[in-house]
Design a binder for these strands. Structure first.
Lengths: 121, 121
DNA sequence: CAGCATCCCTCATGATACTG
DNA sequence: CAGTATCATGAGGGATGCTG
């Protein structure tokens, strides 16, 4: 009989903190949005062309979710034609390094994989 | 006429590095797997009970993907009954802080939101 | 114990068209 | 420009049952 060992990793306090994490980065394009907002505020259509392949509907949905979560700030400018600028909130900016770290790891993994397969040259 | 400003964010070298990122953390349970492997190797059924709500099928799929990607190491122990231990590779371990950072931000956002709504007490 | 095979079903995404 | 409405699709996920 194999005994199930007790996990040494403490589970989150109330309910899964990872759930919150998942809600934040849910959606295929969420990392892209945060990525492209890192340097400066961007308008809707700018983001849409920054992020190749995203549809207006999905982009709009993500932006609304991120705004609701407190990651992104939406600011309608009183110009003609009307423009809207999106930017990262202070907390939103804290997500940037995390995403960068994941990207970095995935880059290293890619290289490692090529080497493993002998595609090094 | 509104001019579309050039983005100052450099797009990834060859093709979207964020795609690689997405592939890494794709799947609802991927962060959980990495989270629960951070301290020590875990067996399949241990992980399954660590991660409440995950099905064997999905867990198995994620583990296979992560192993294929080079994030997780699978080691079959020659015991009876057979046991299999999963652990993080060196690069896999680099993902841990990133996930922790995202969790941290999501916790802060949650508190901020409660405060905003007046549920502070 | 450690999975794989199957069936089903929901949700996110994509495309298209339209509005303020 | 900055979206919303509607429809169609399909991949990911859950449940169950079976194998080595």
């Amino acid at each position: 009989m194999v005994k199930v060992r007790k996990s040494k990793v403490t589970p989150p306090p109330t309910e899964c903190p990872l759930s919150g994490c998942m809600k934040l980065i849910r959606g295929a394009w969420t990392p892209h949005v945060i990525w492209y907002l890192k340097a400066e505020p961007r308008r809707f259509s700018e983001l849409k062309s920054d992020i190749k392949g995203v549809s207006a509907k999905v982009l709009s949905t993500r932006l609304k979710e991120l705004e609701e979560a407190g990651v992104v700030l939406r600011e309608a400018m009183n110009t003609s034609p009307p423009t809207v600028e999106y930017s990262l909130t202070e907390l939103g900016r804290e997500l940037q390094p995390a995403i960068a770290a994941i990207v970095s790891v995935s880059e290293k993994l890619k290289k490692q994989k090529y080497a493993r397969l002998g595609y090094a040259r």
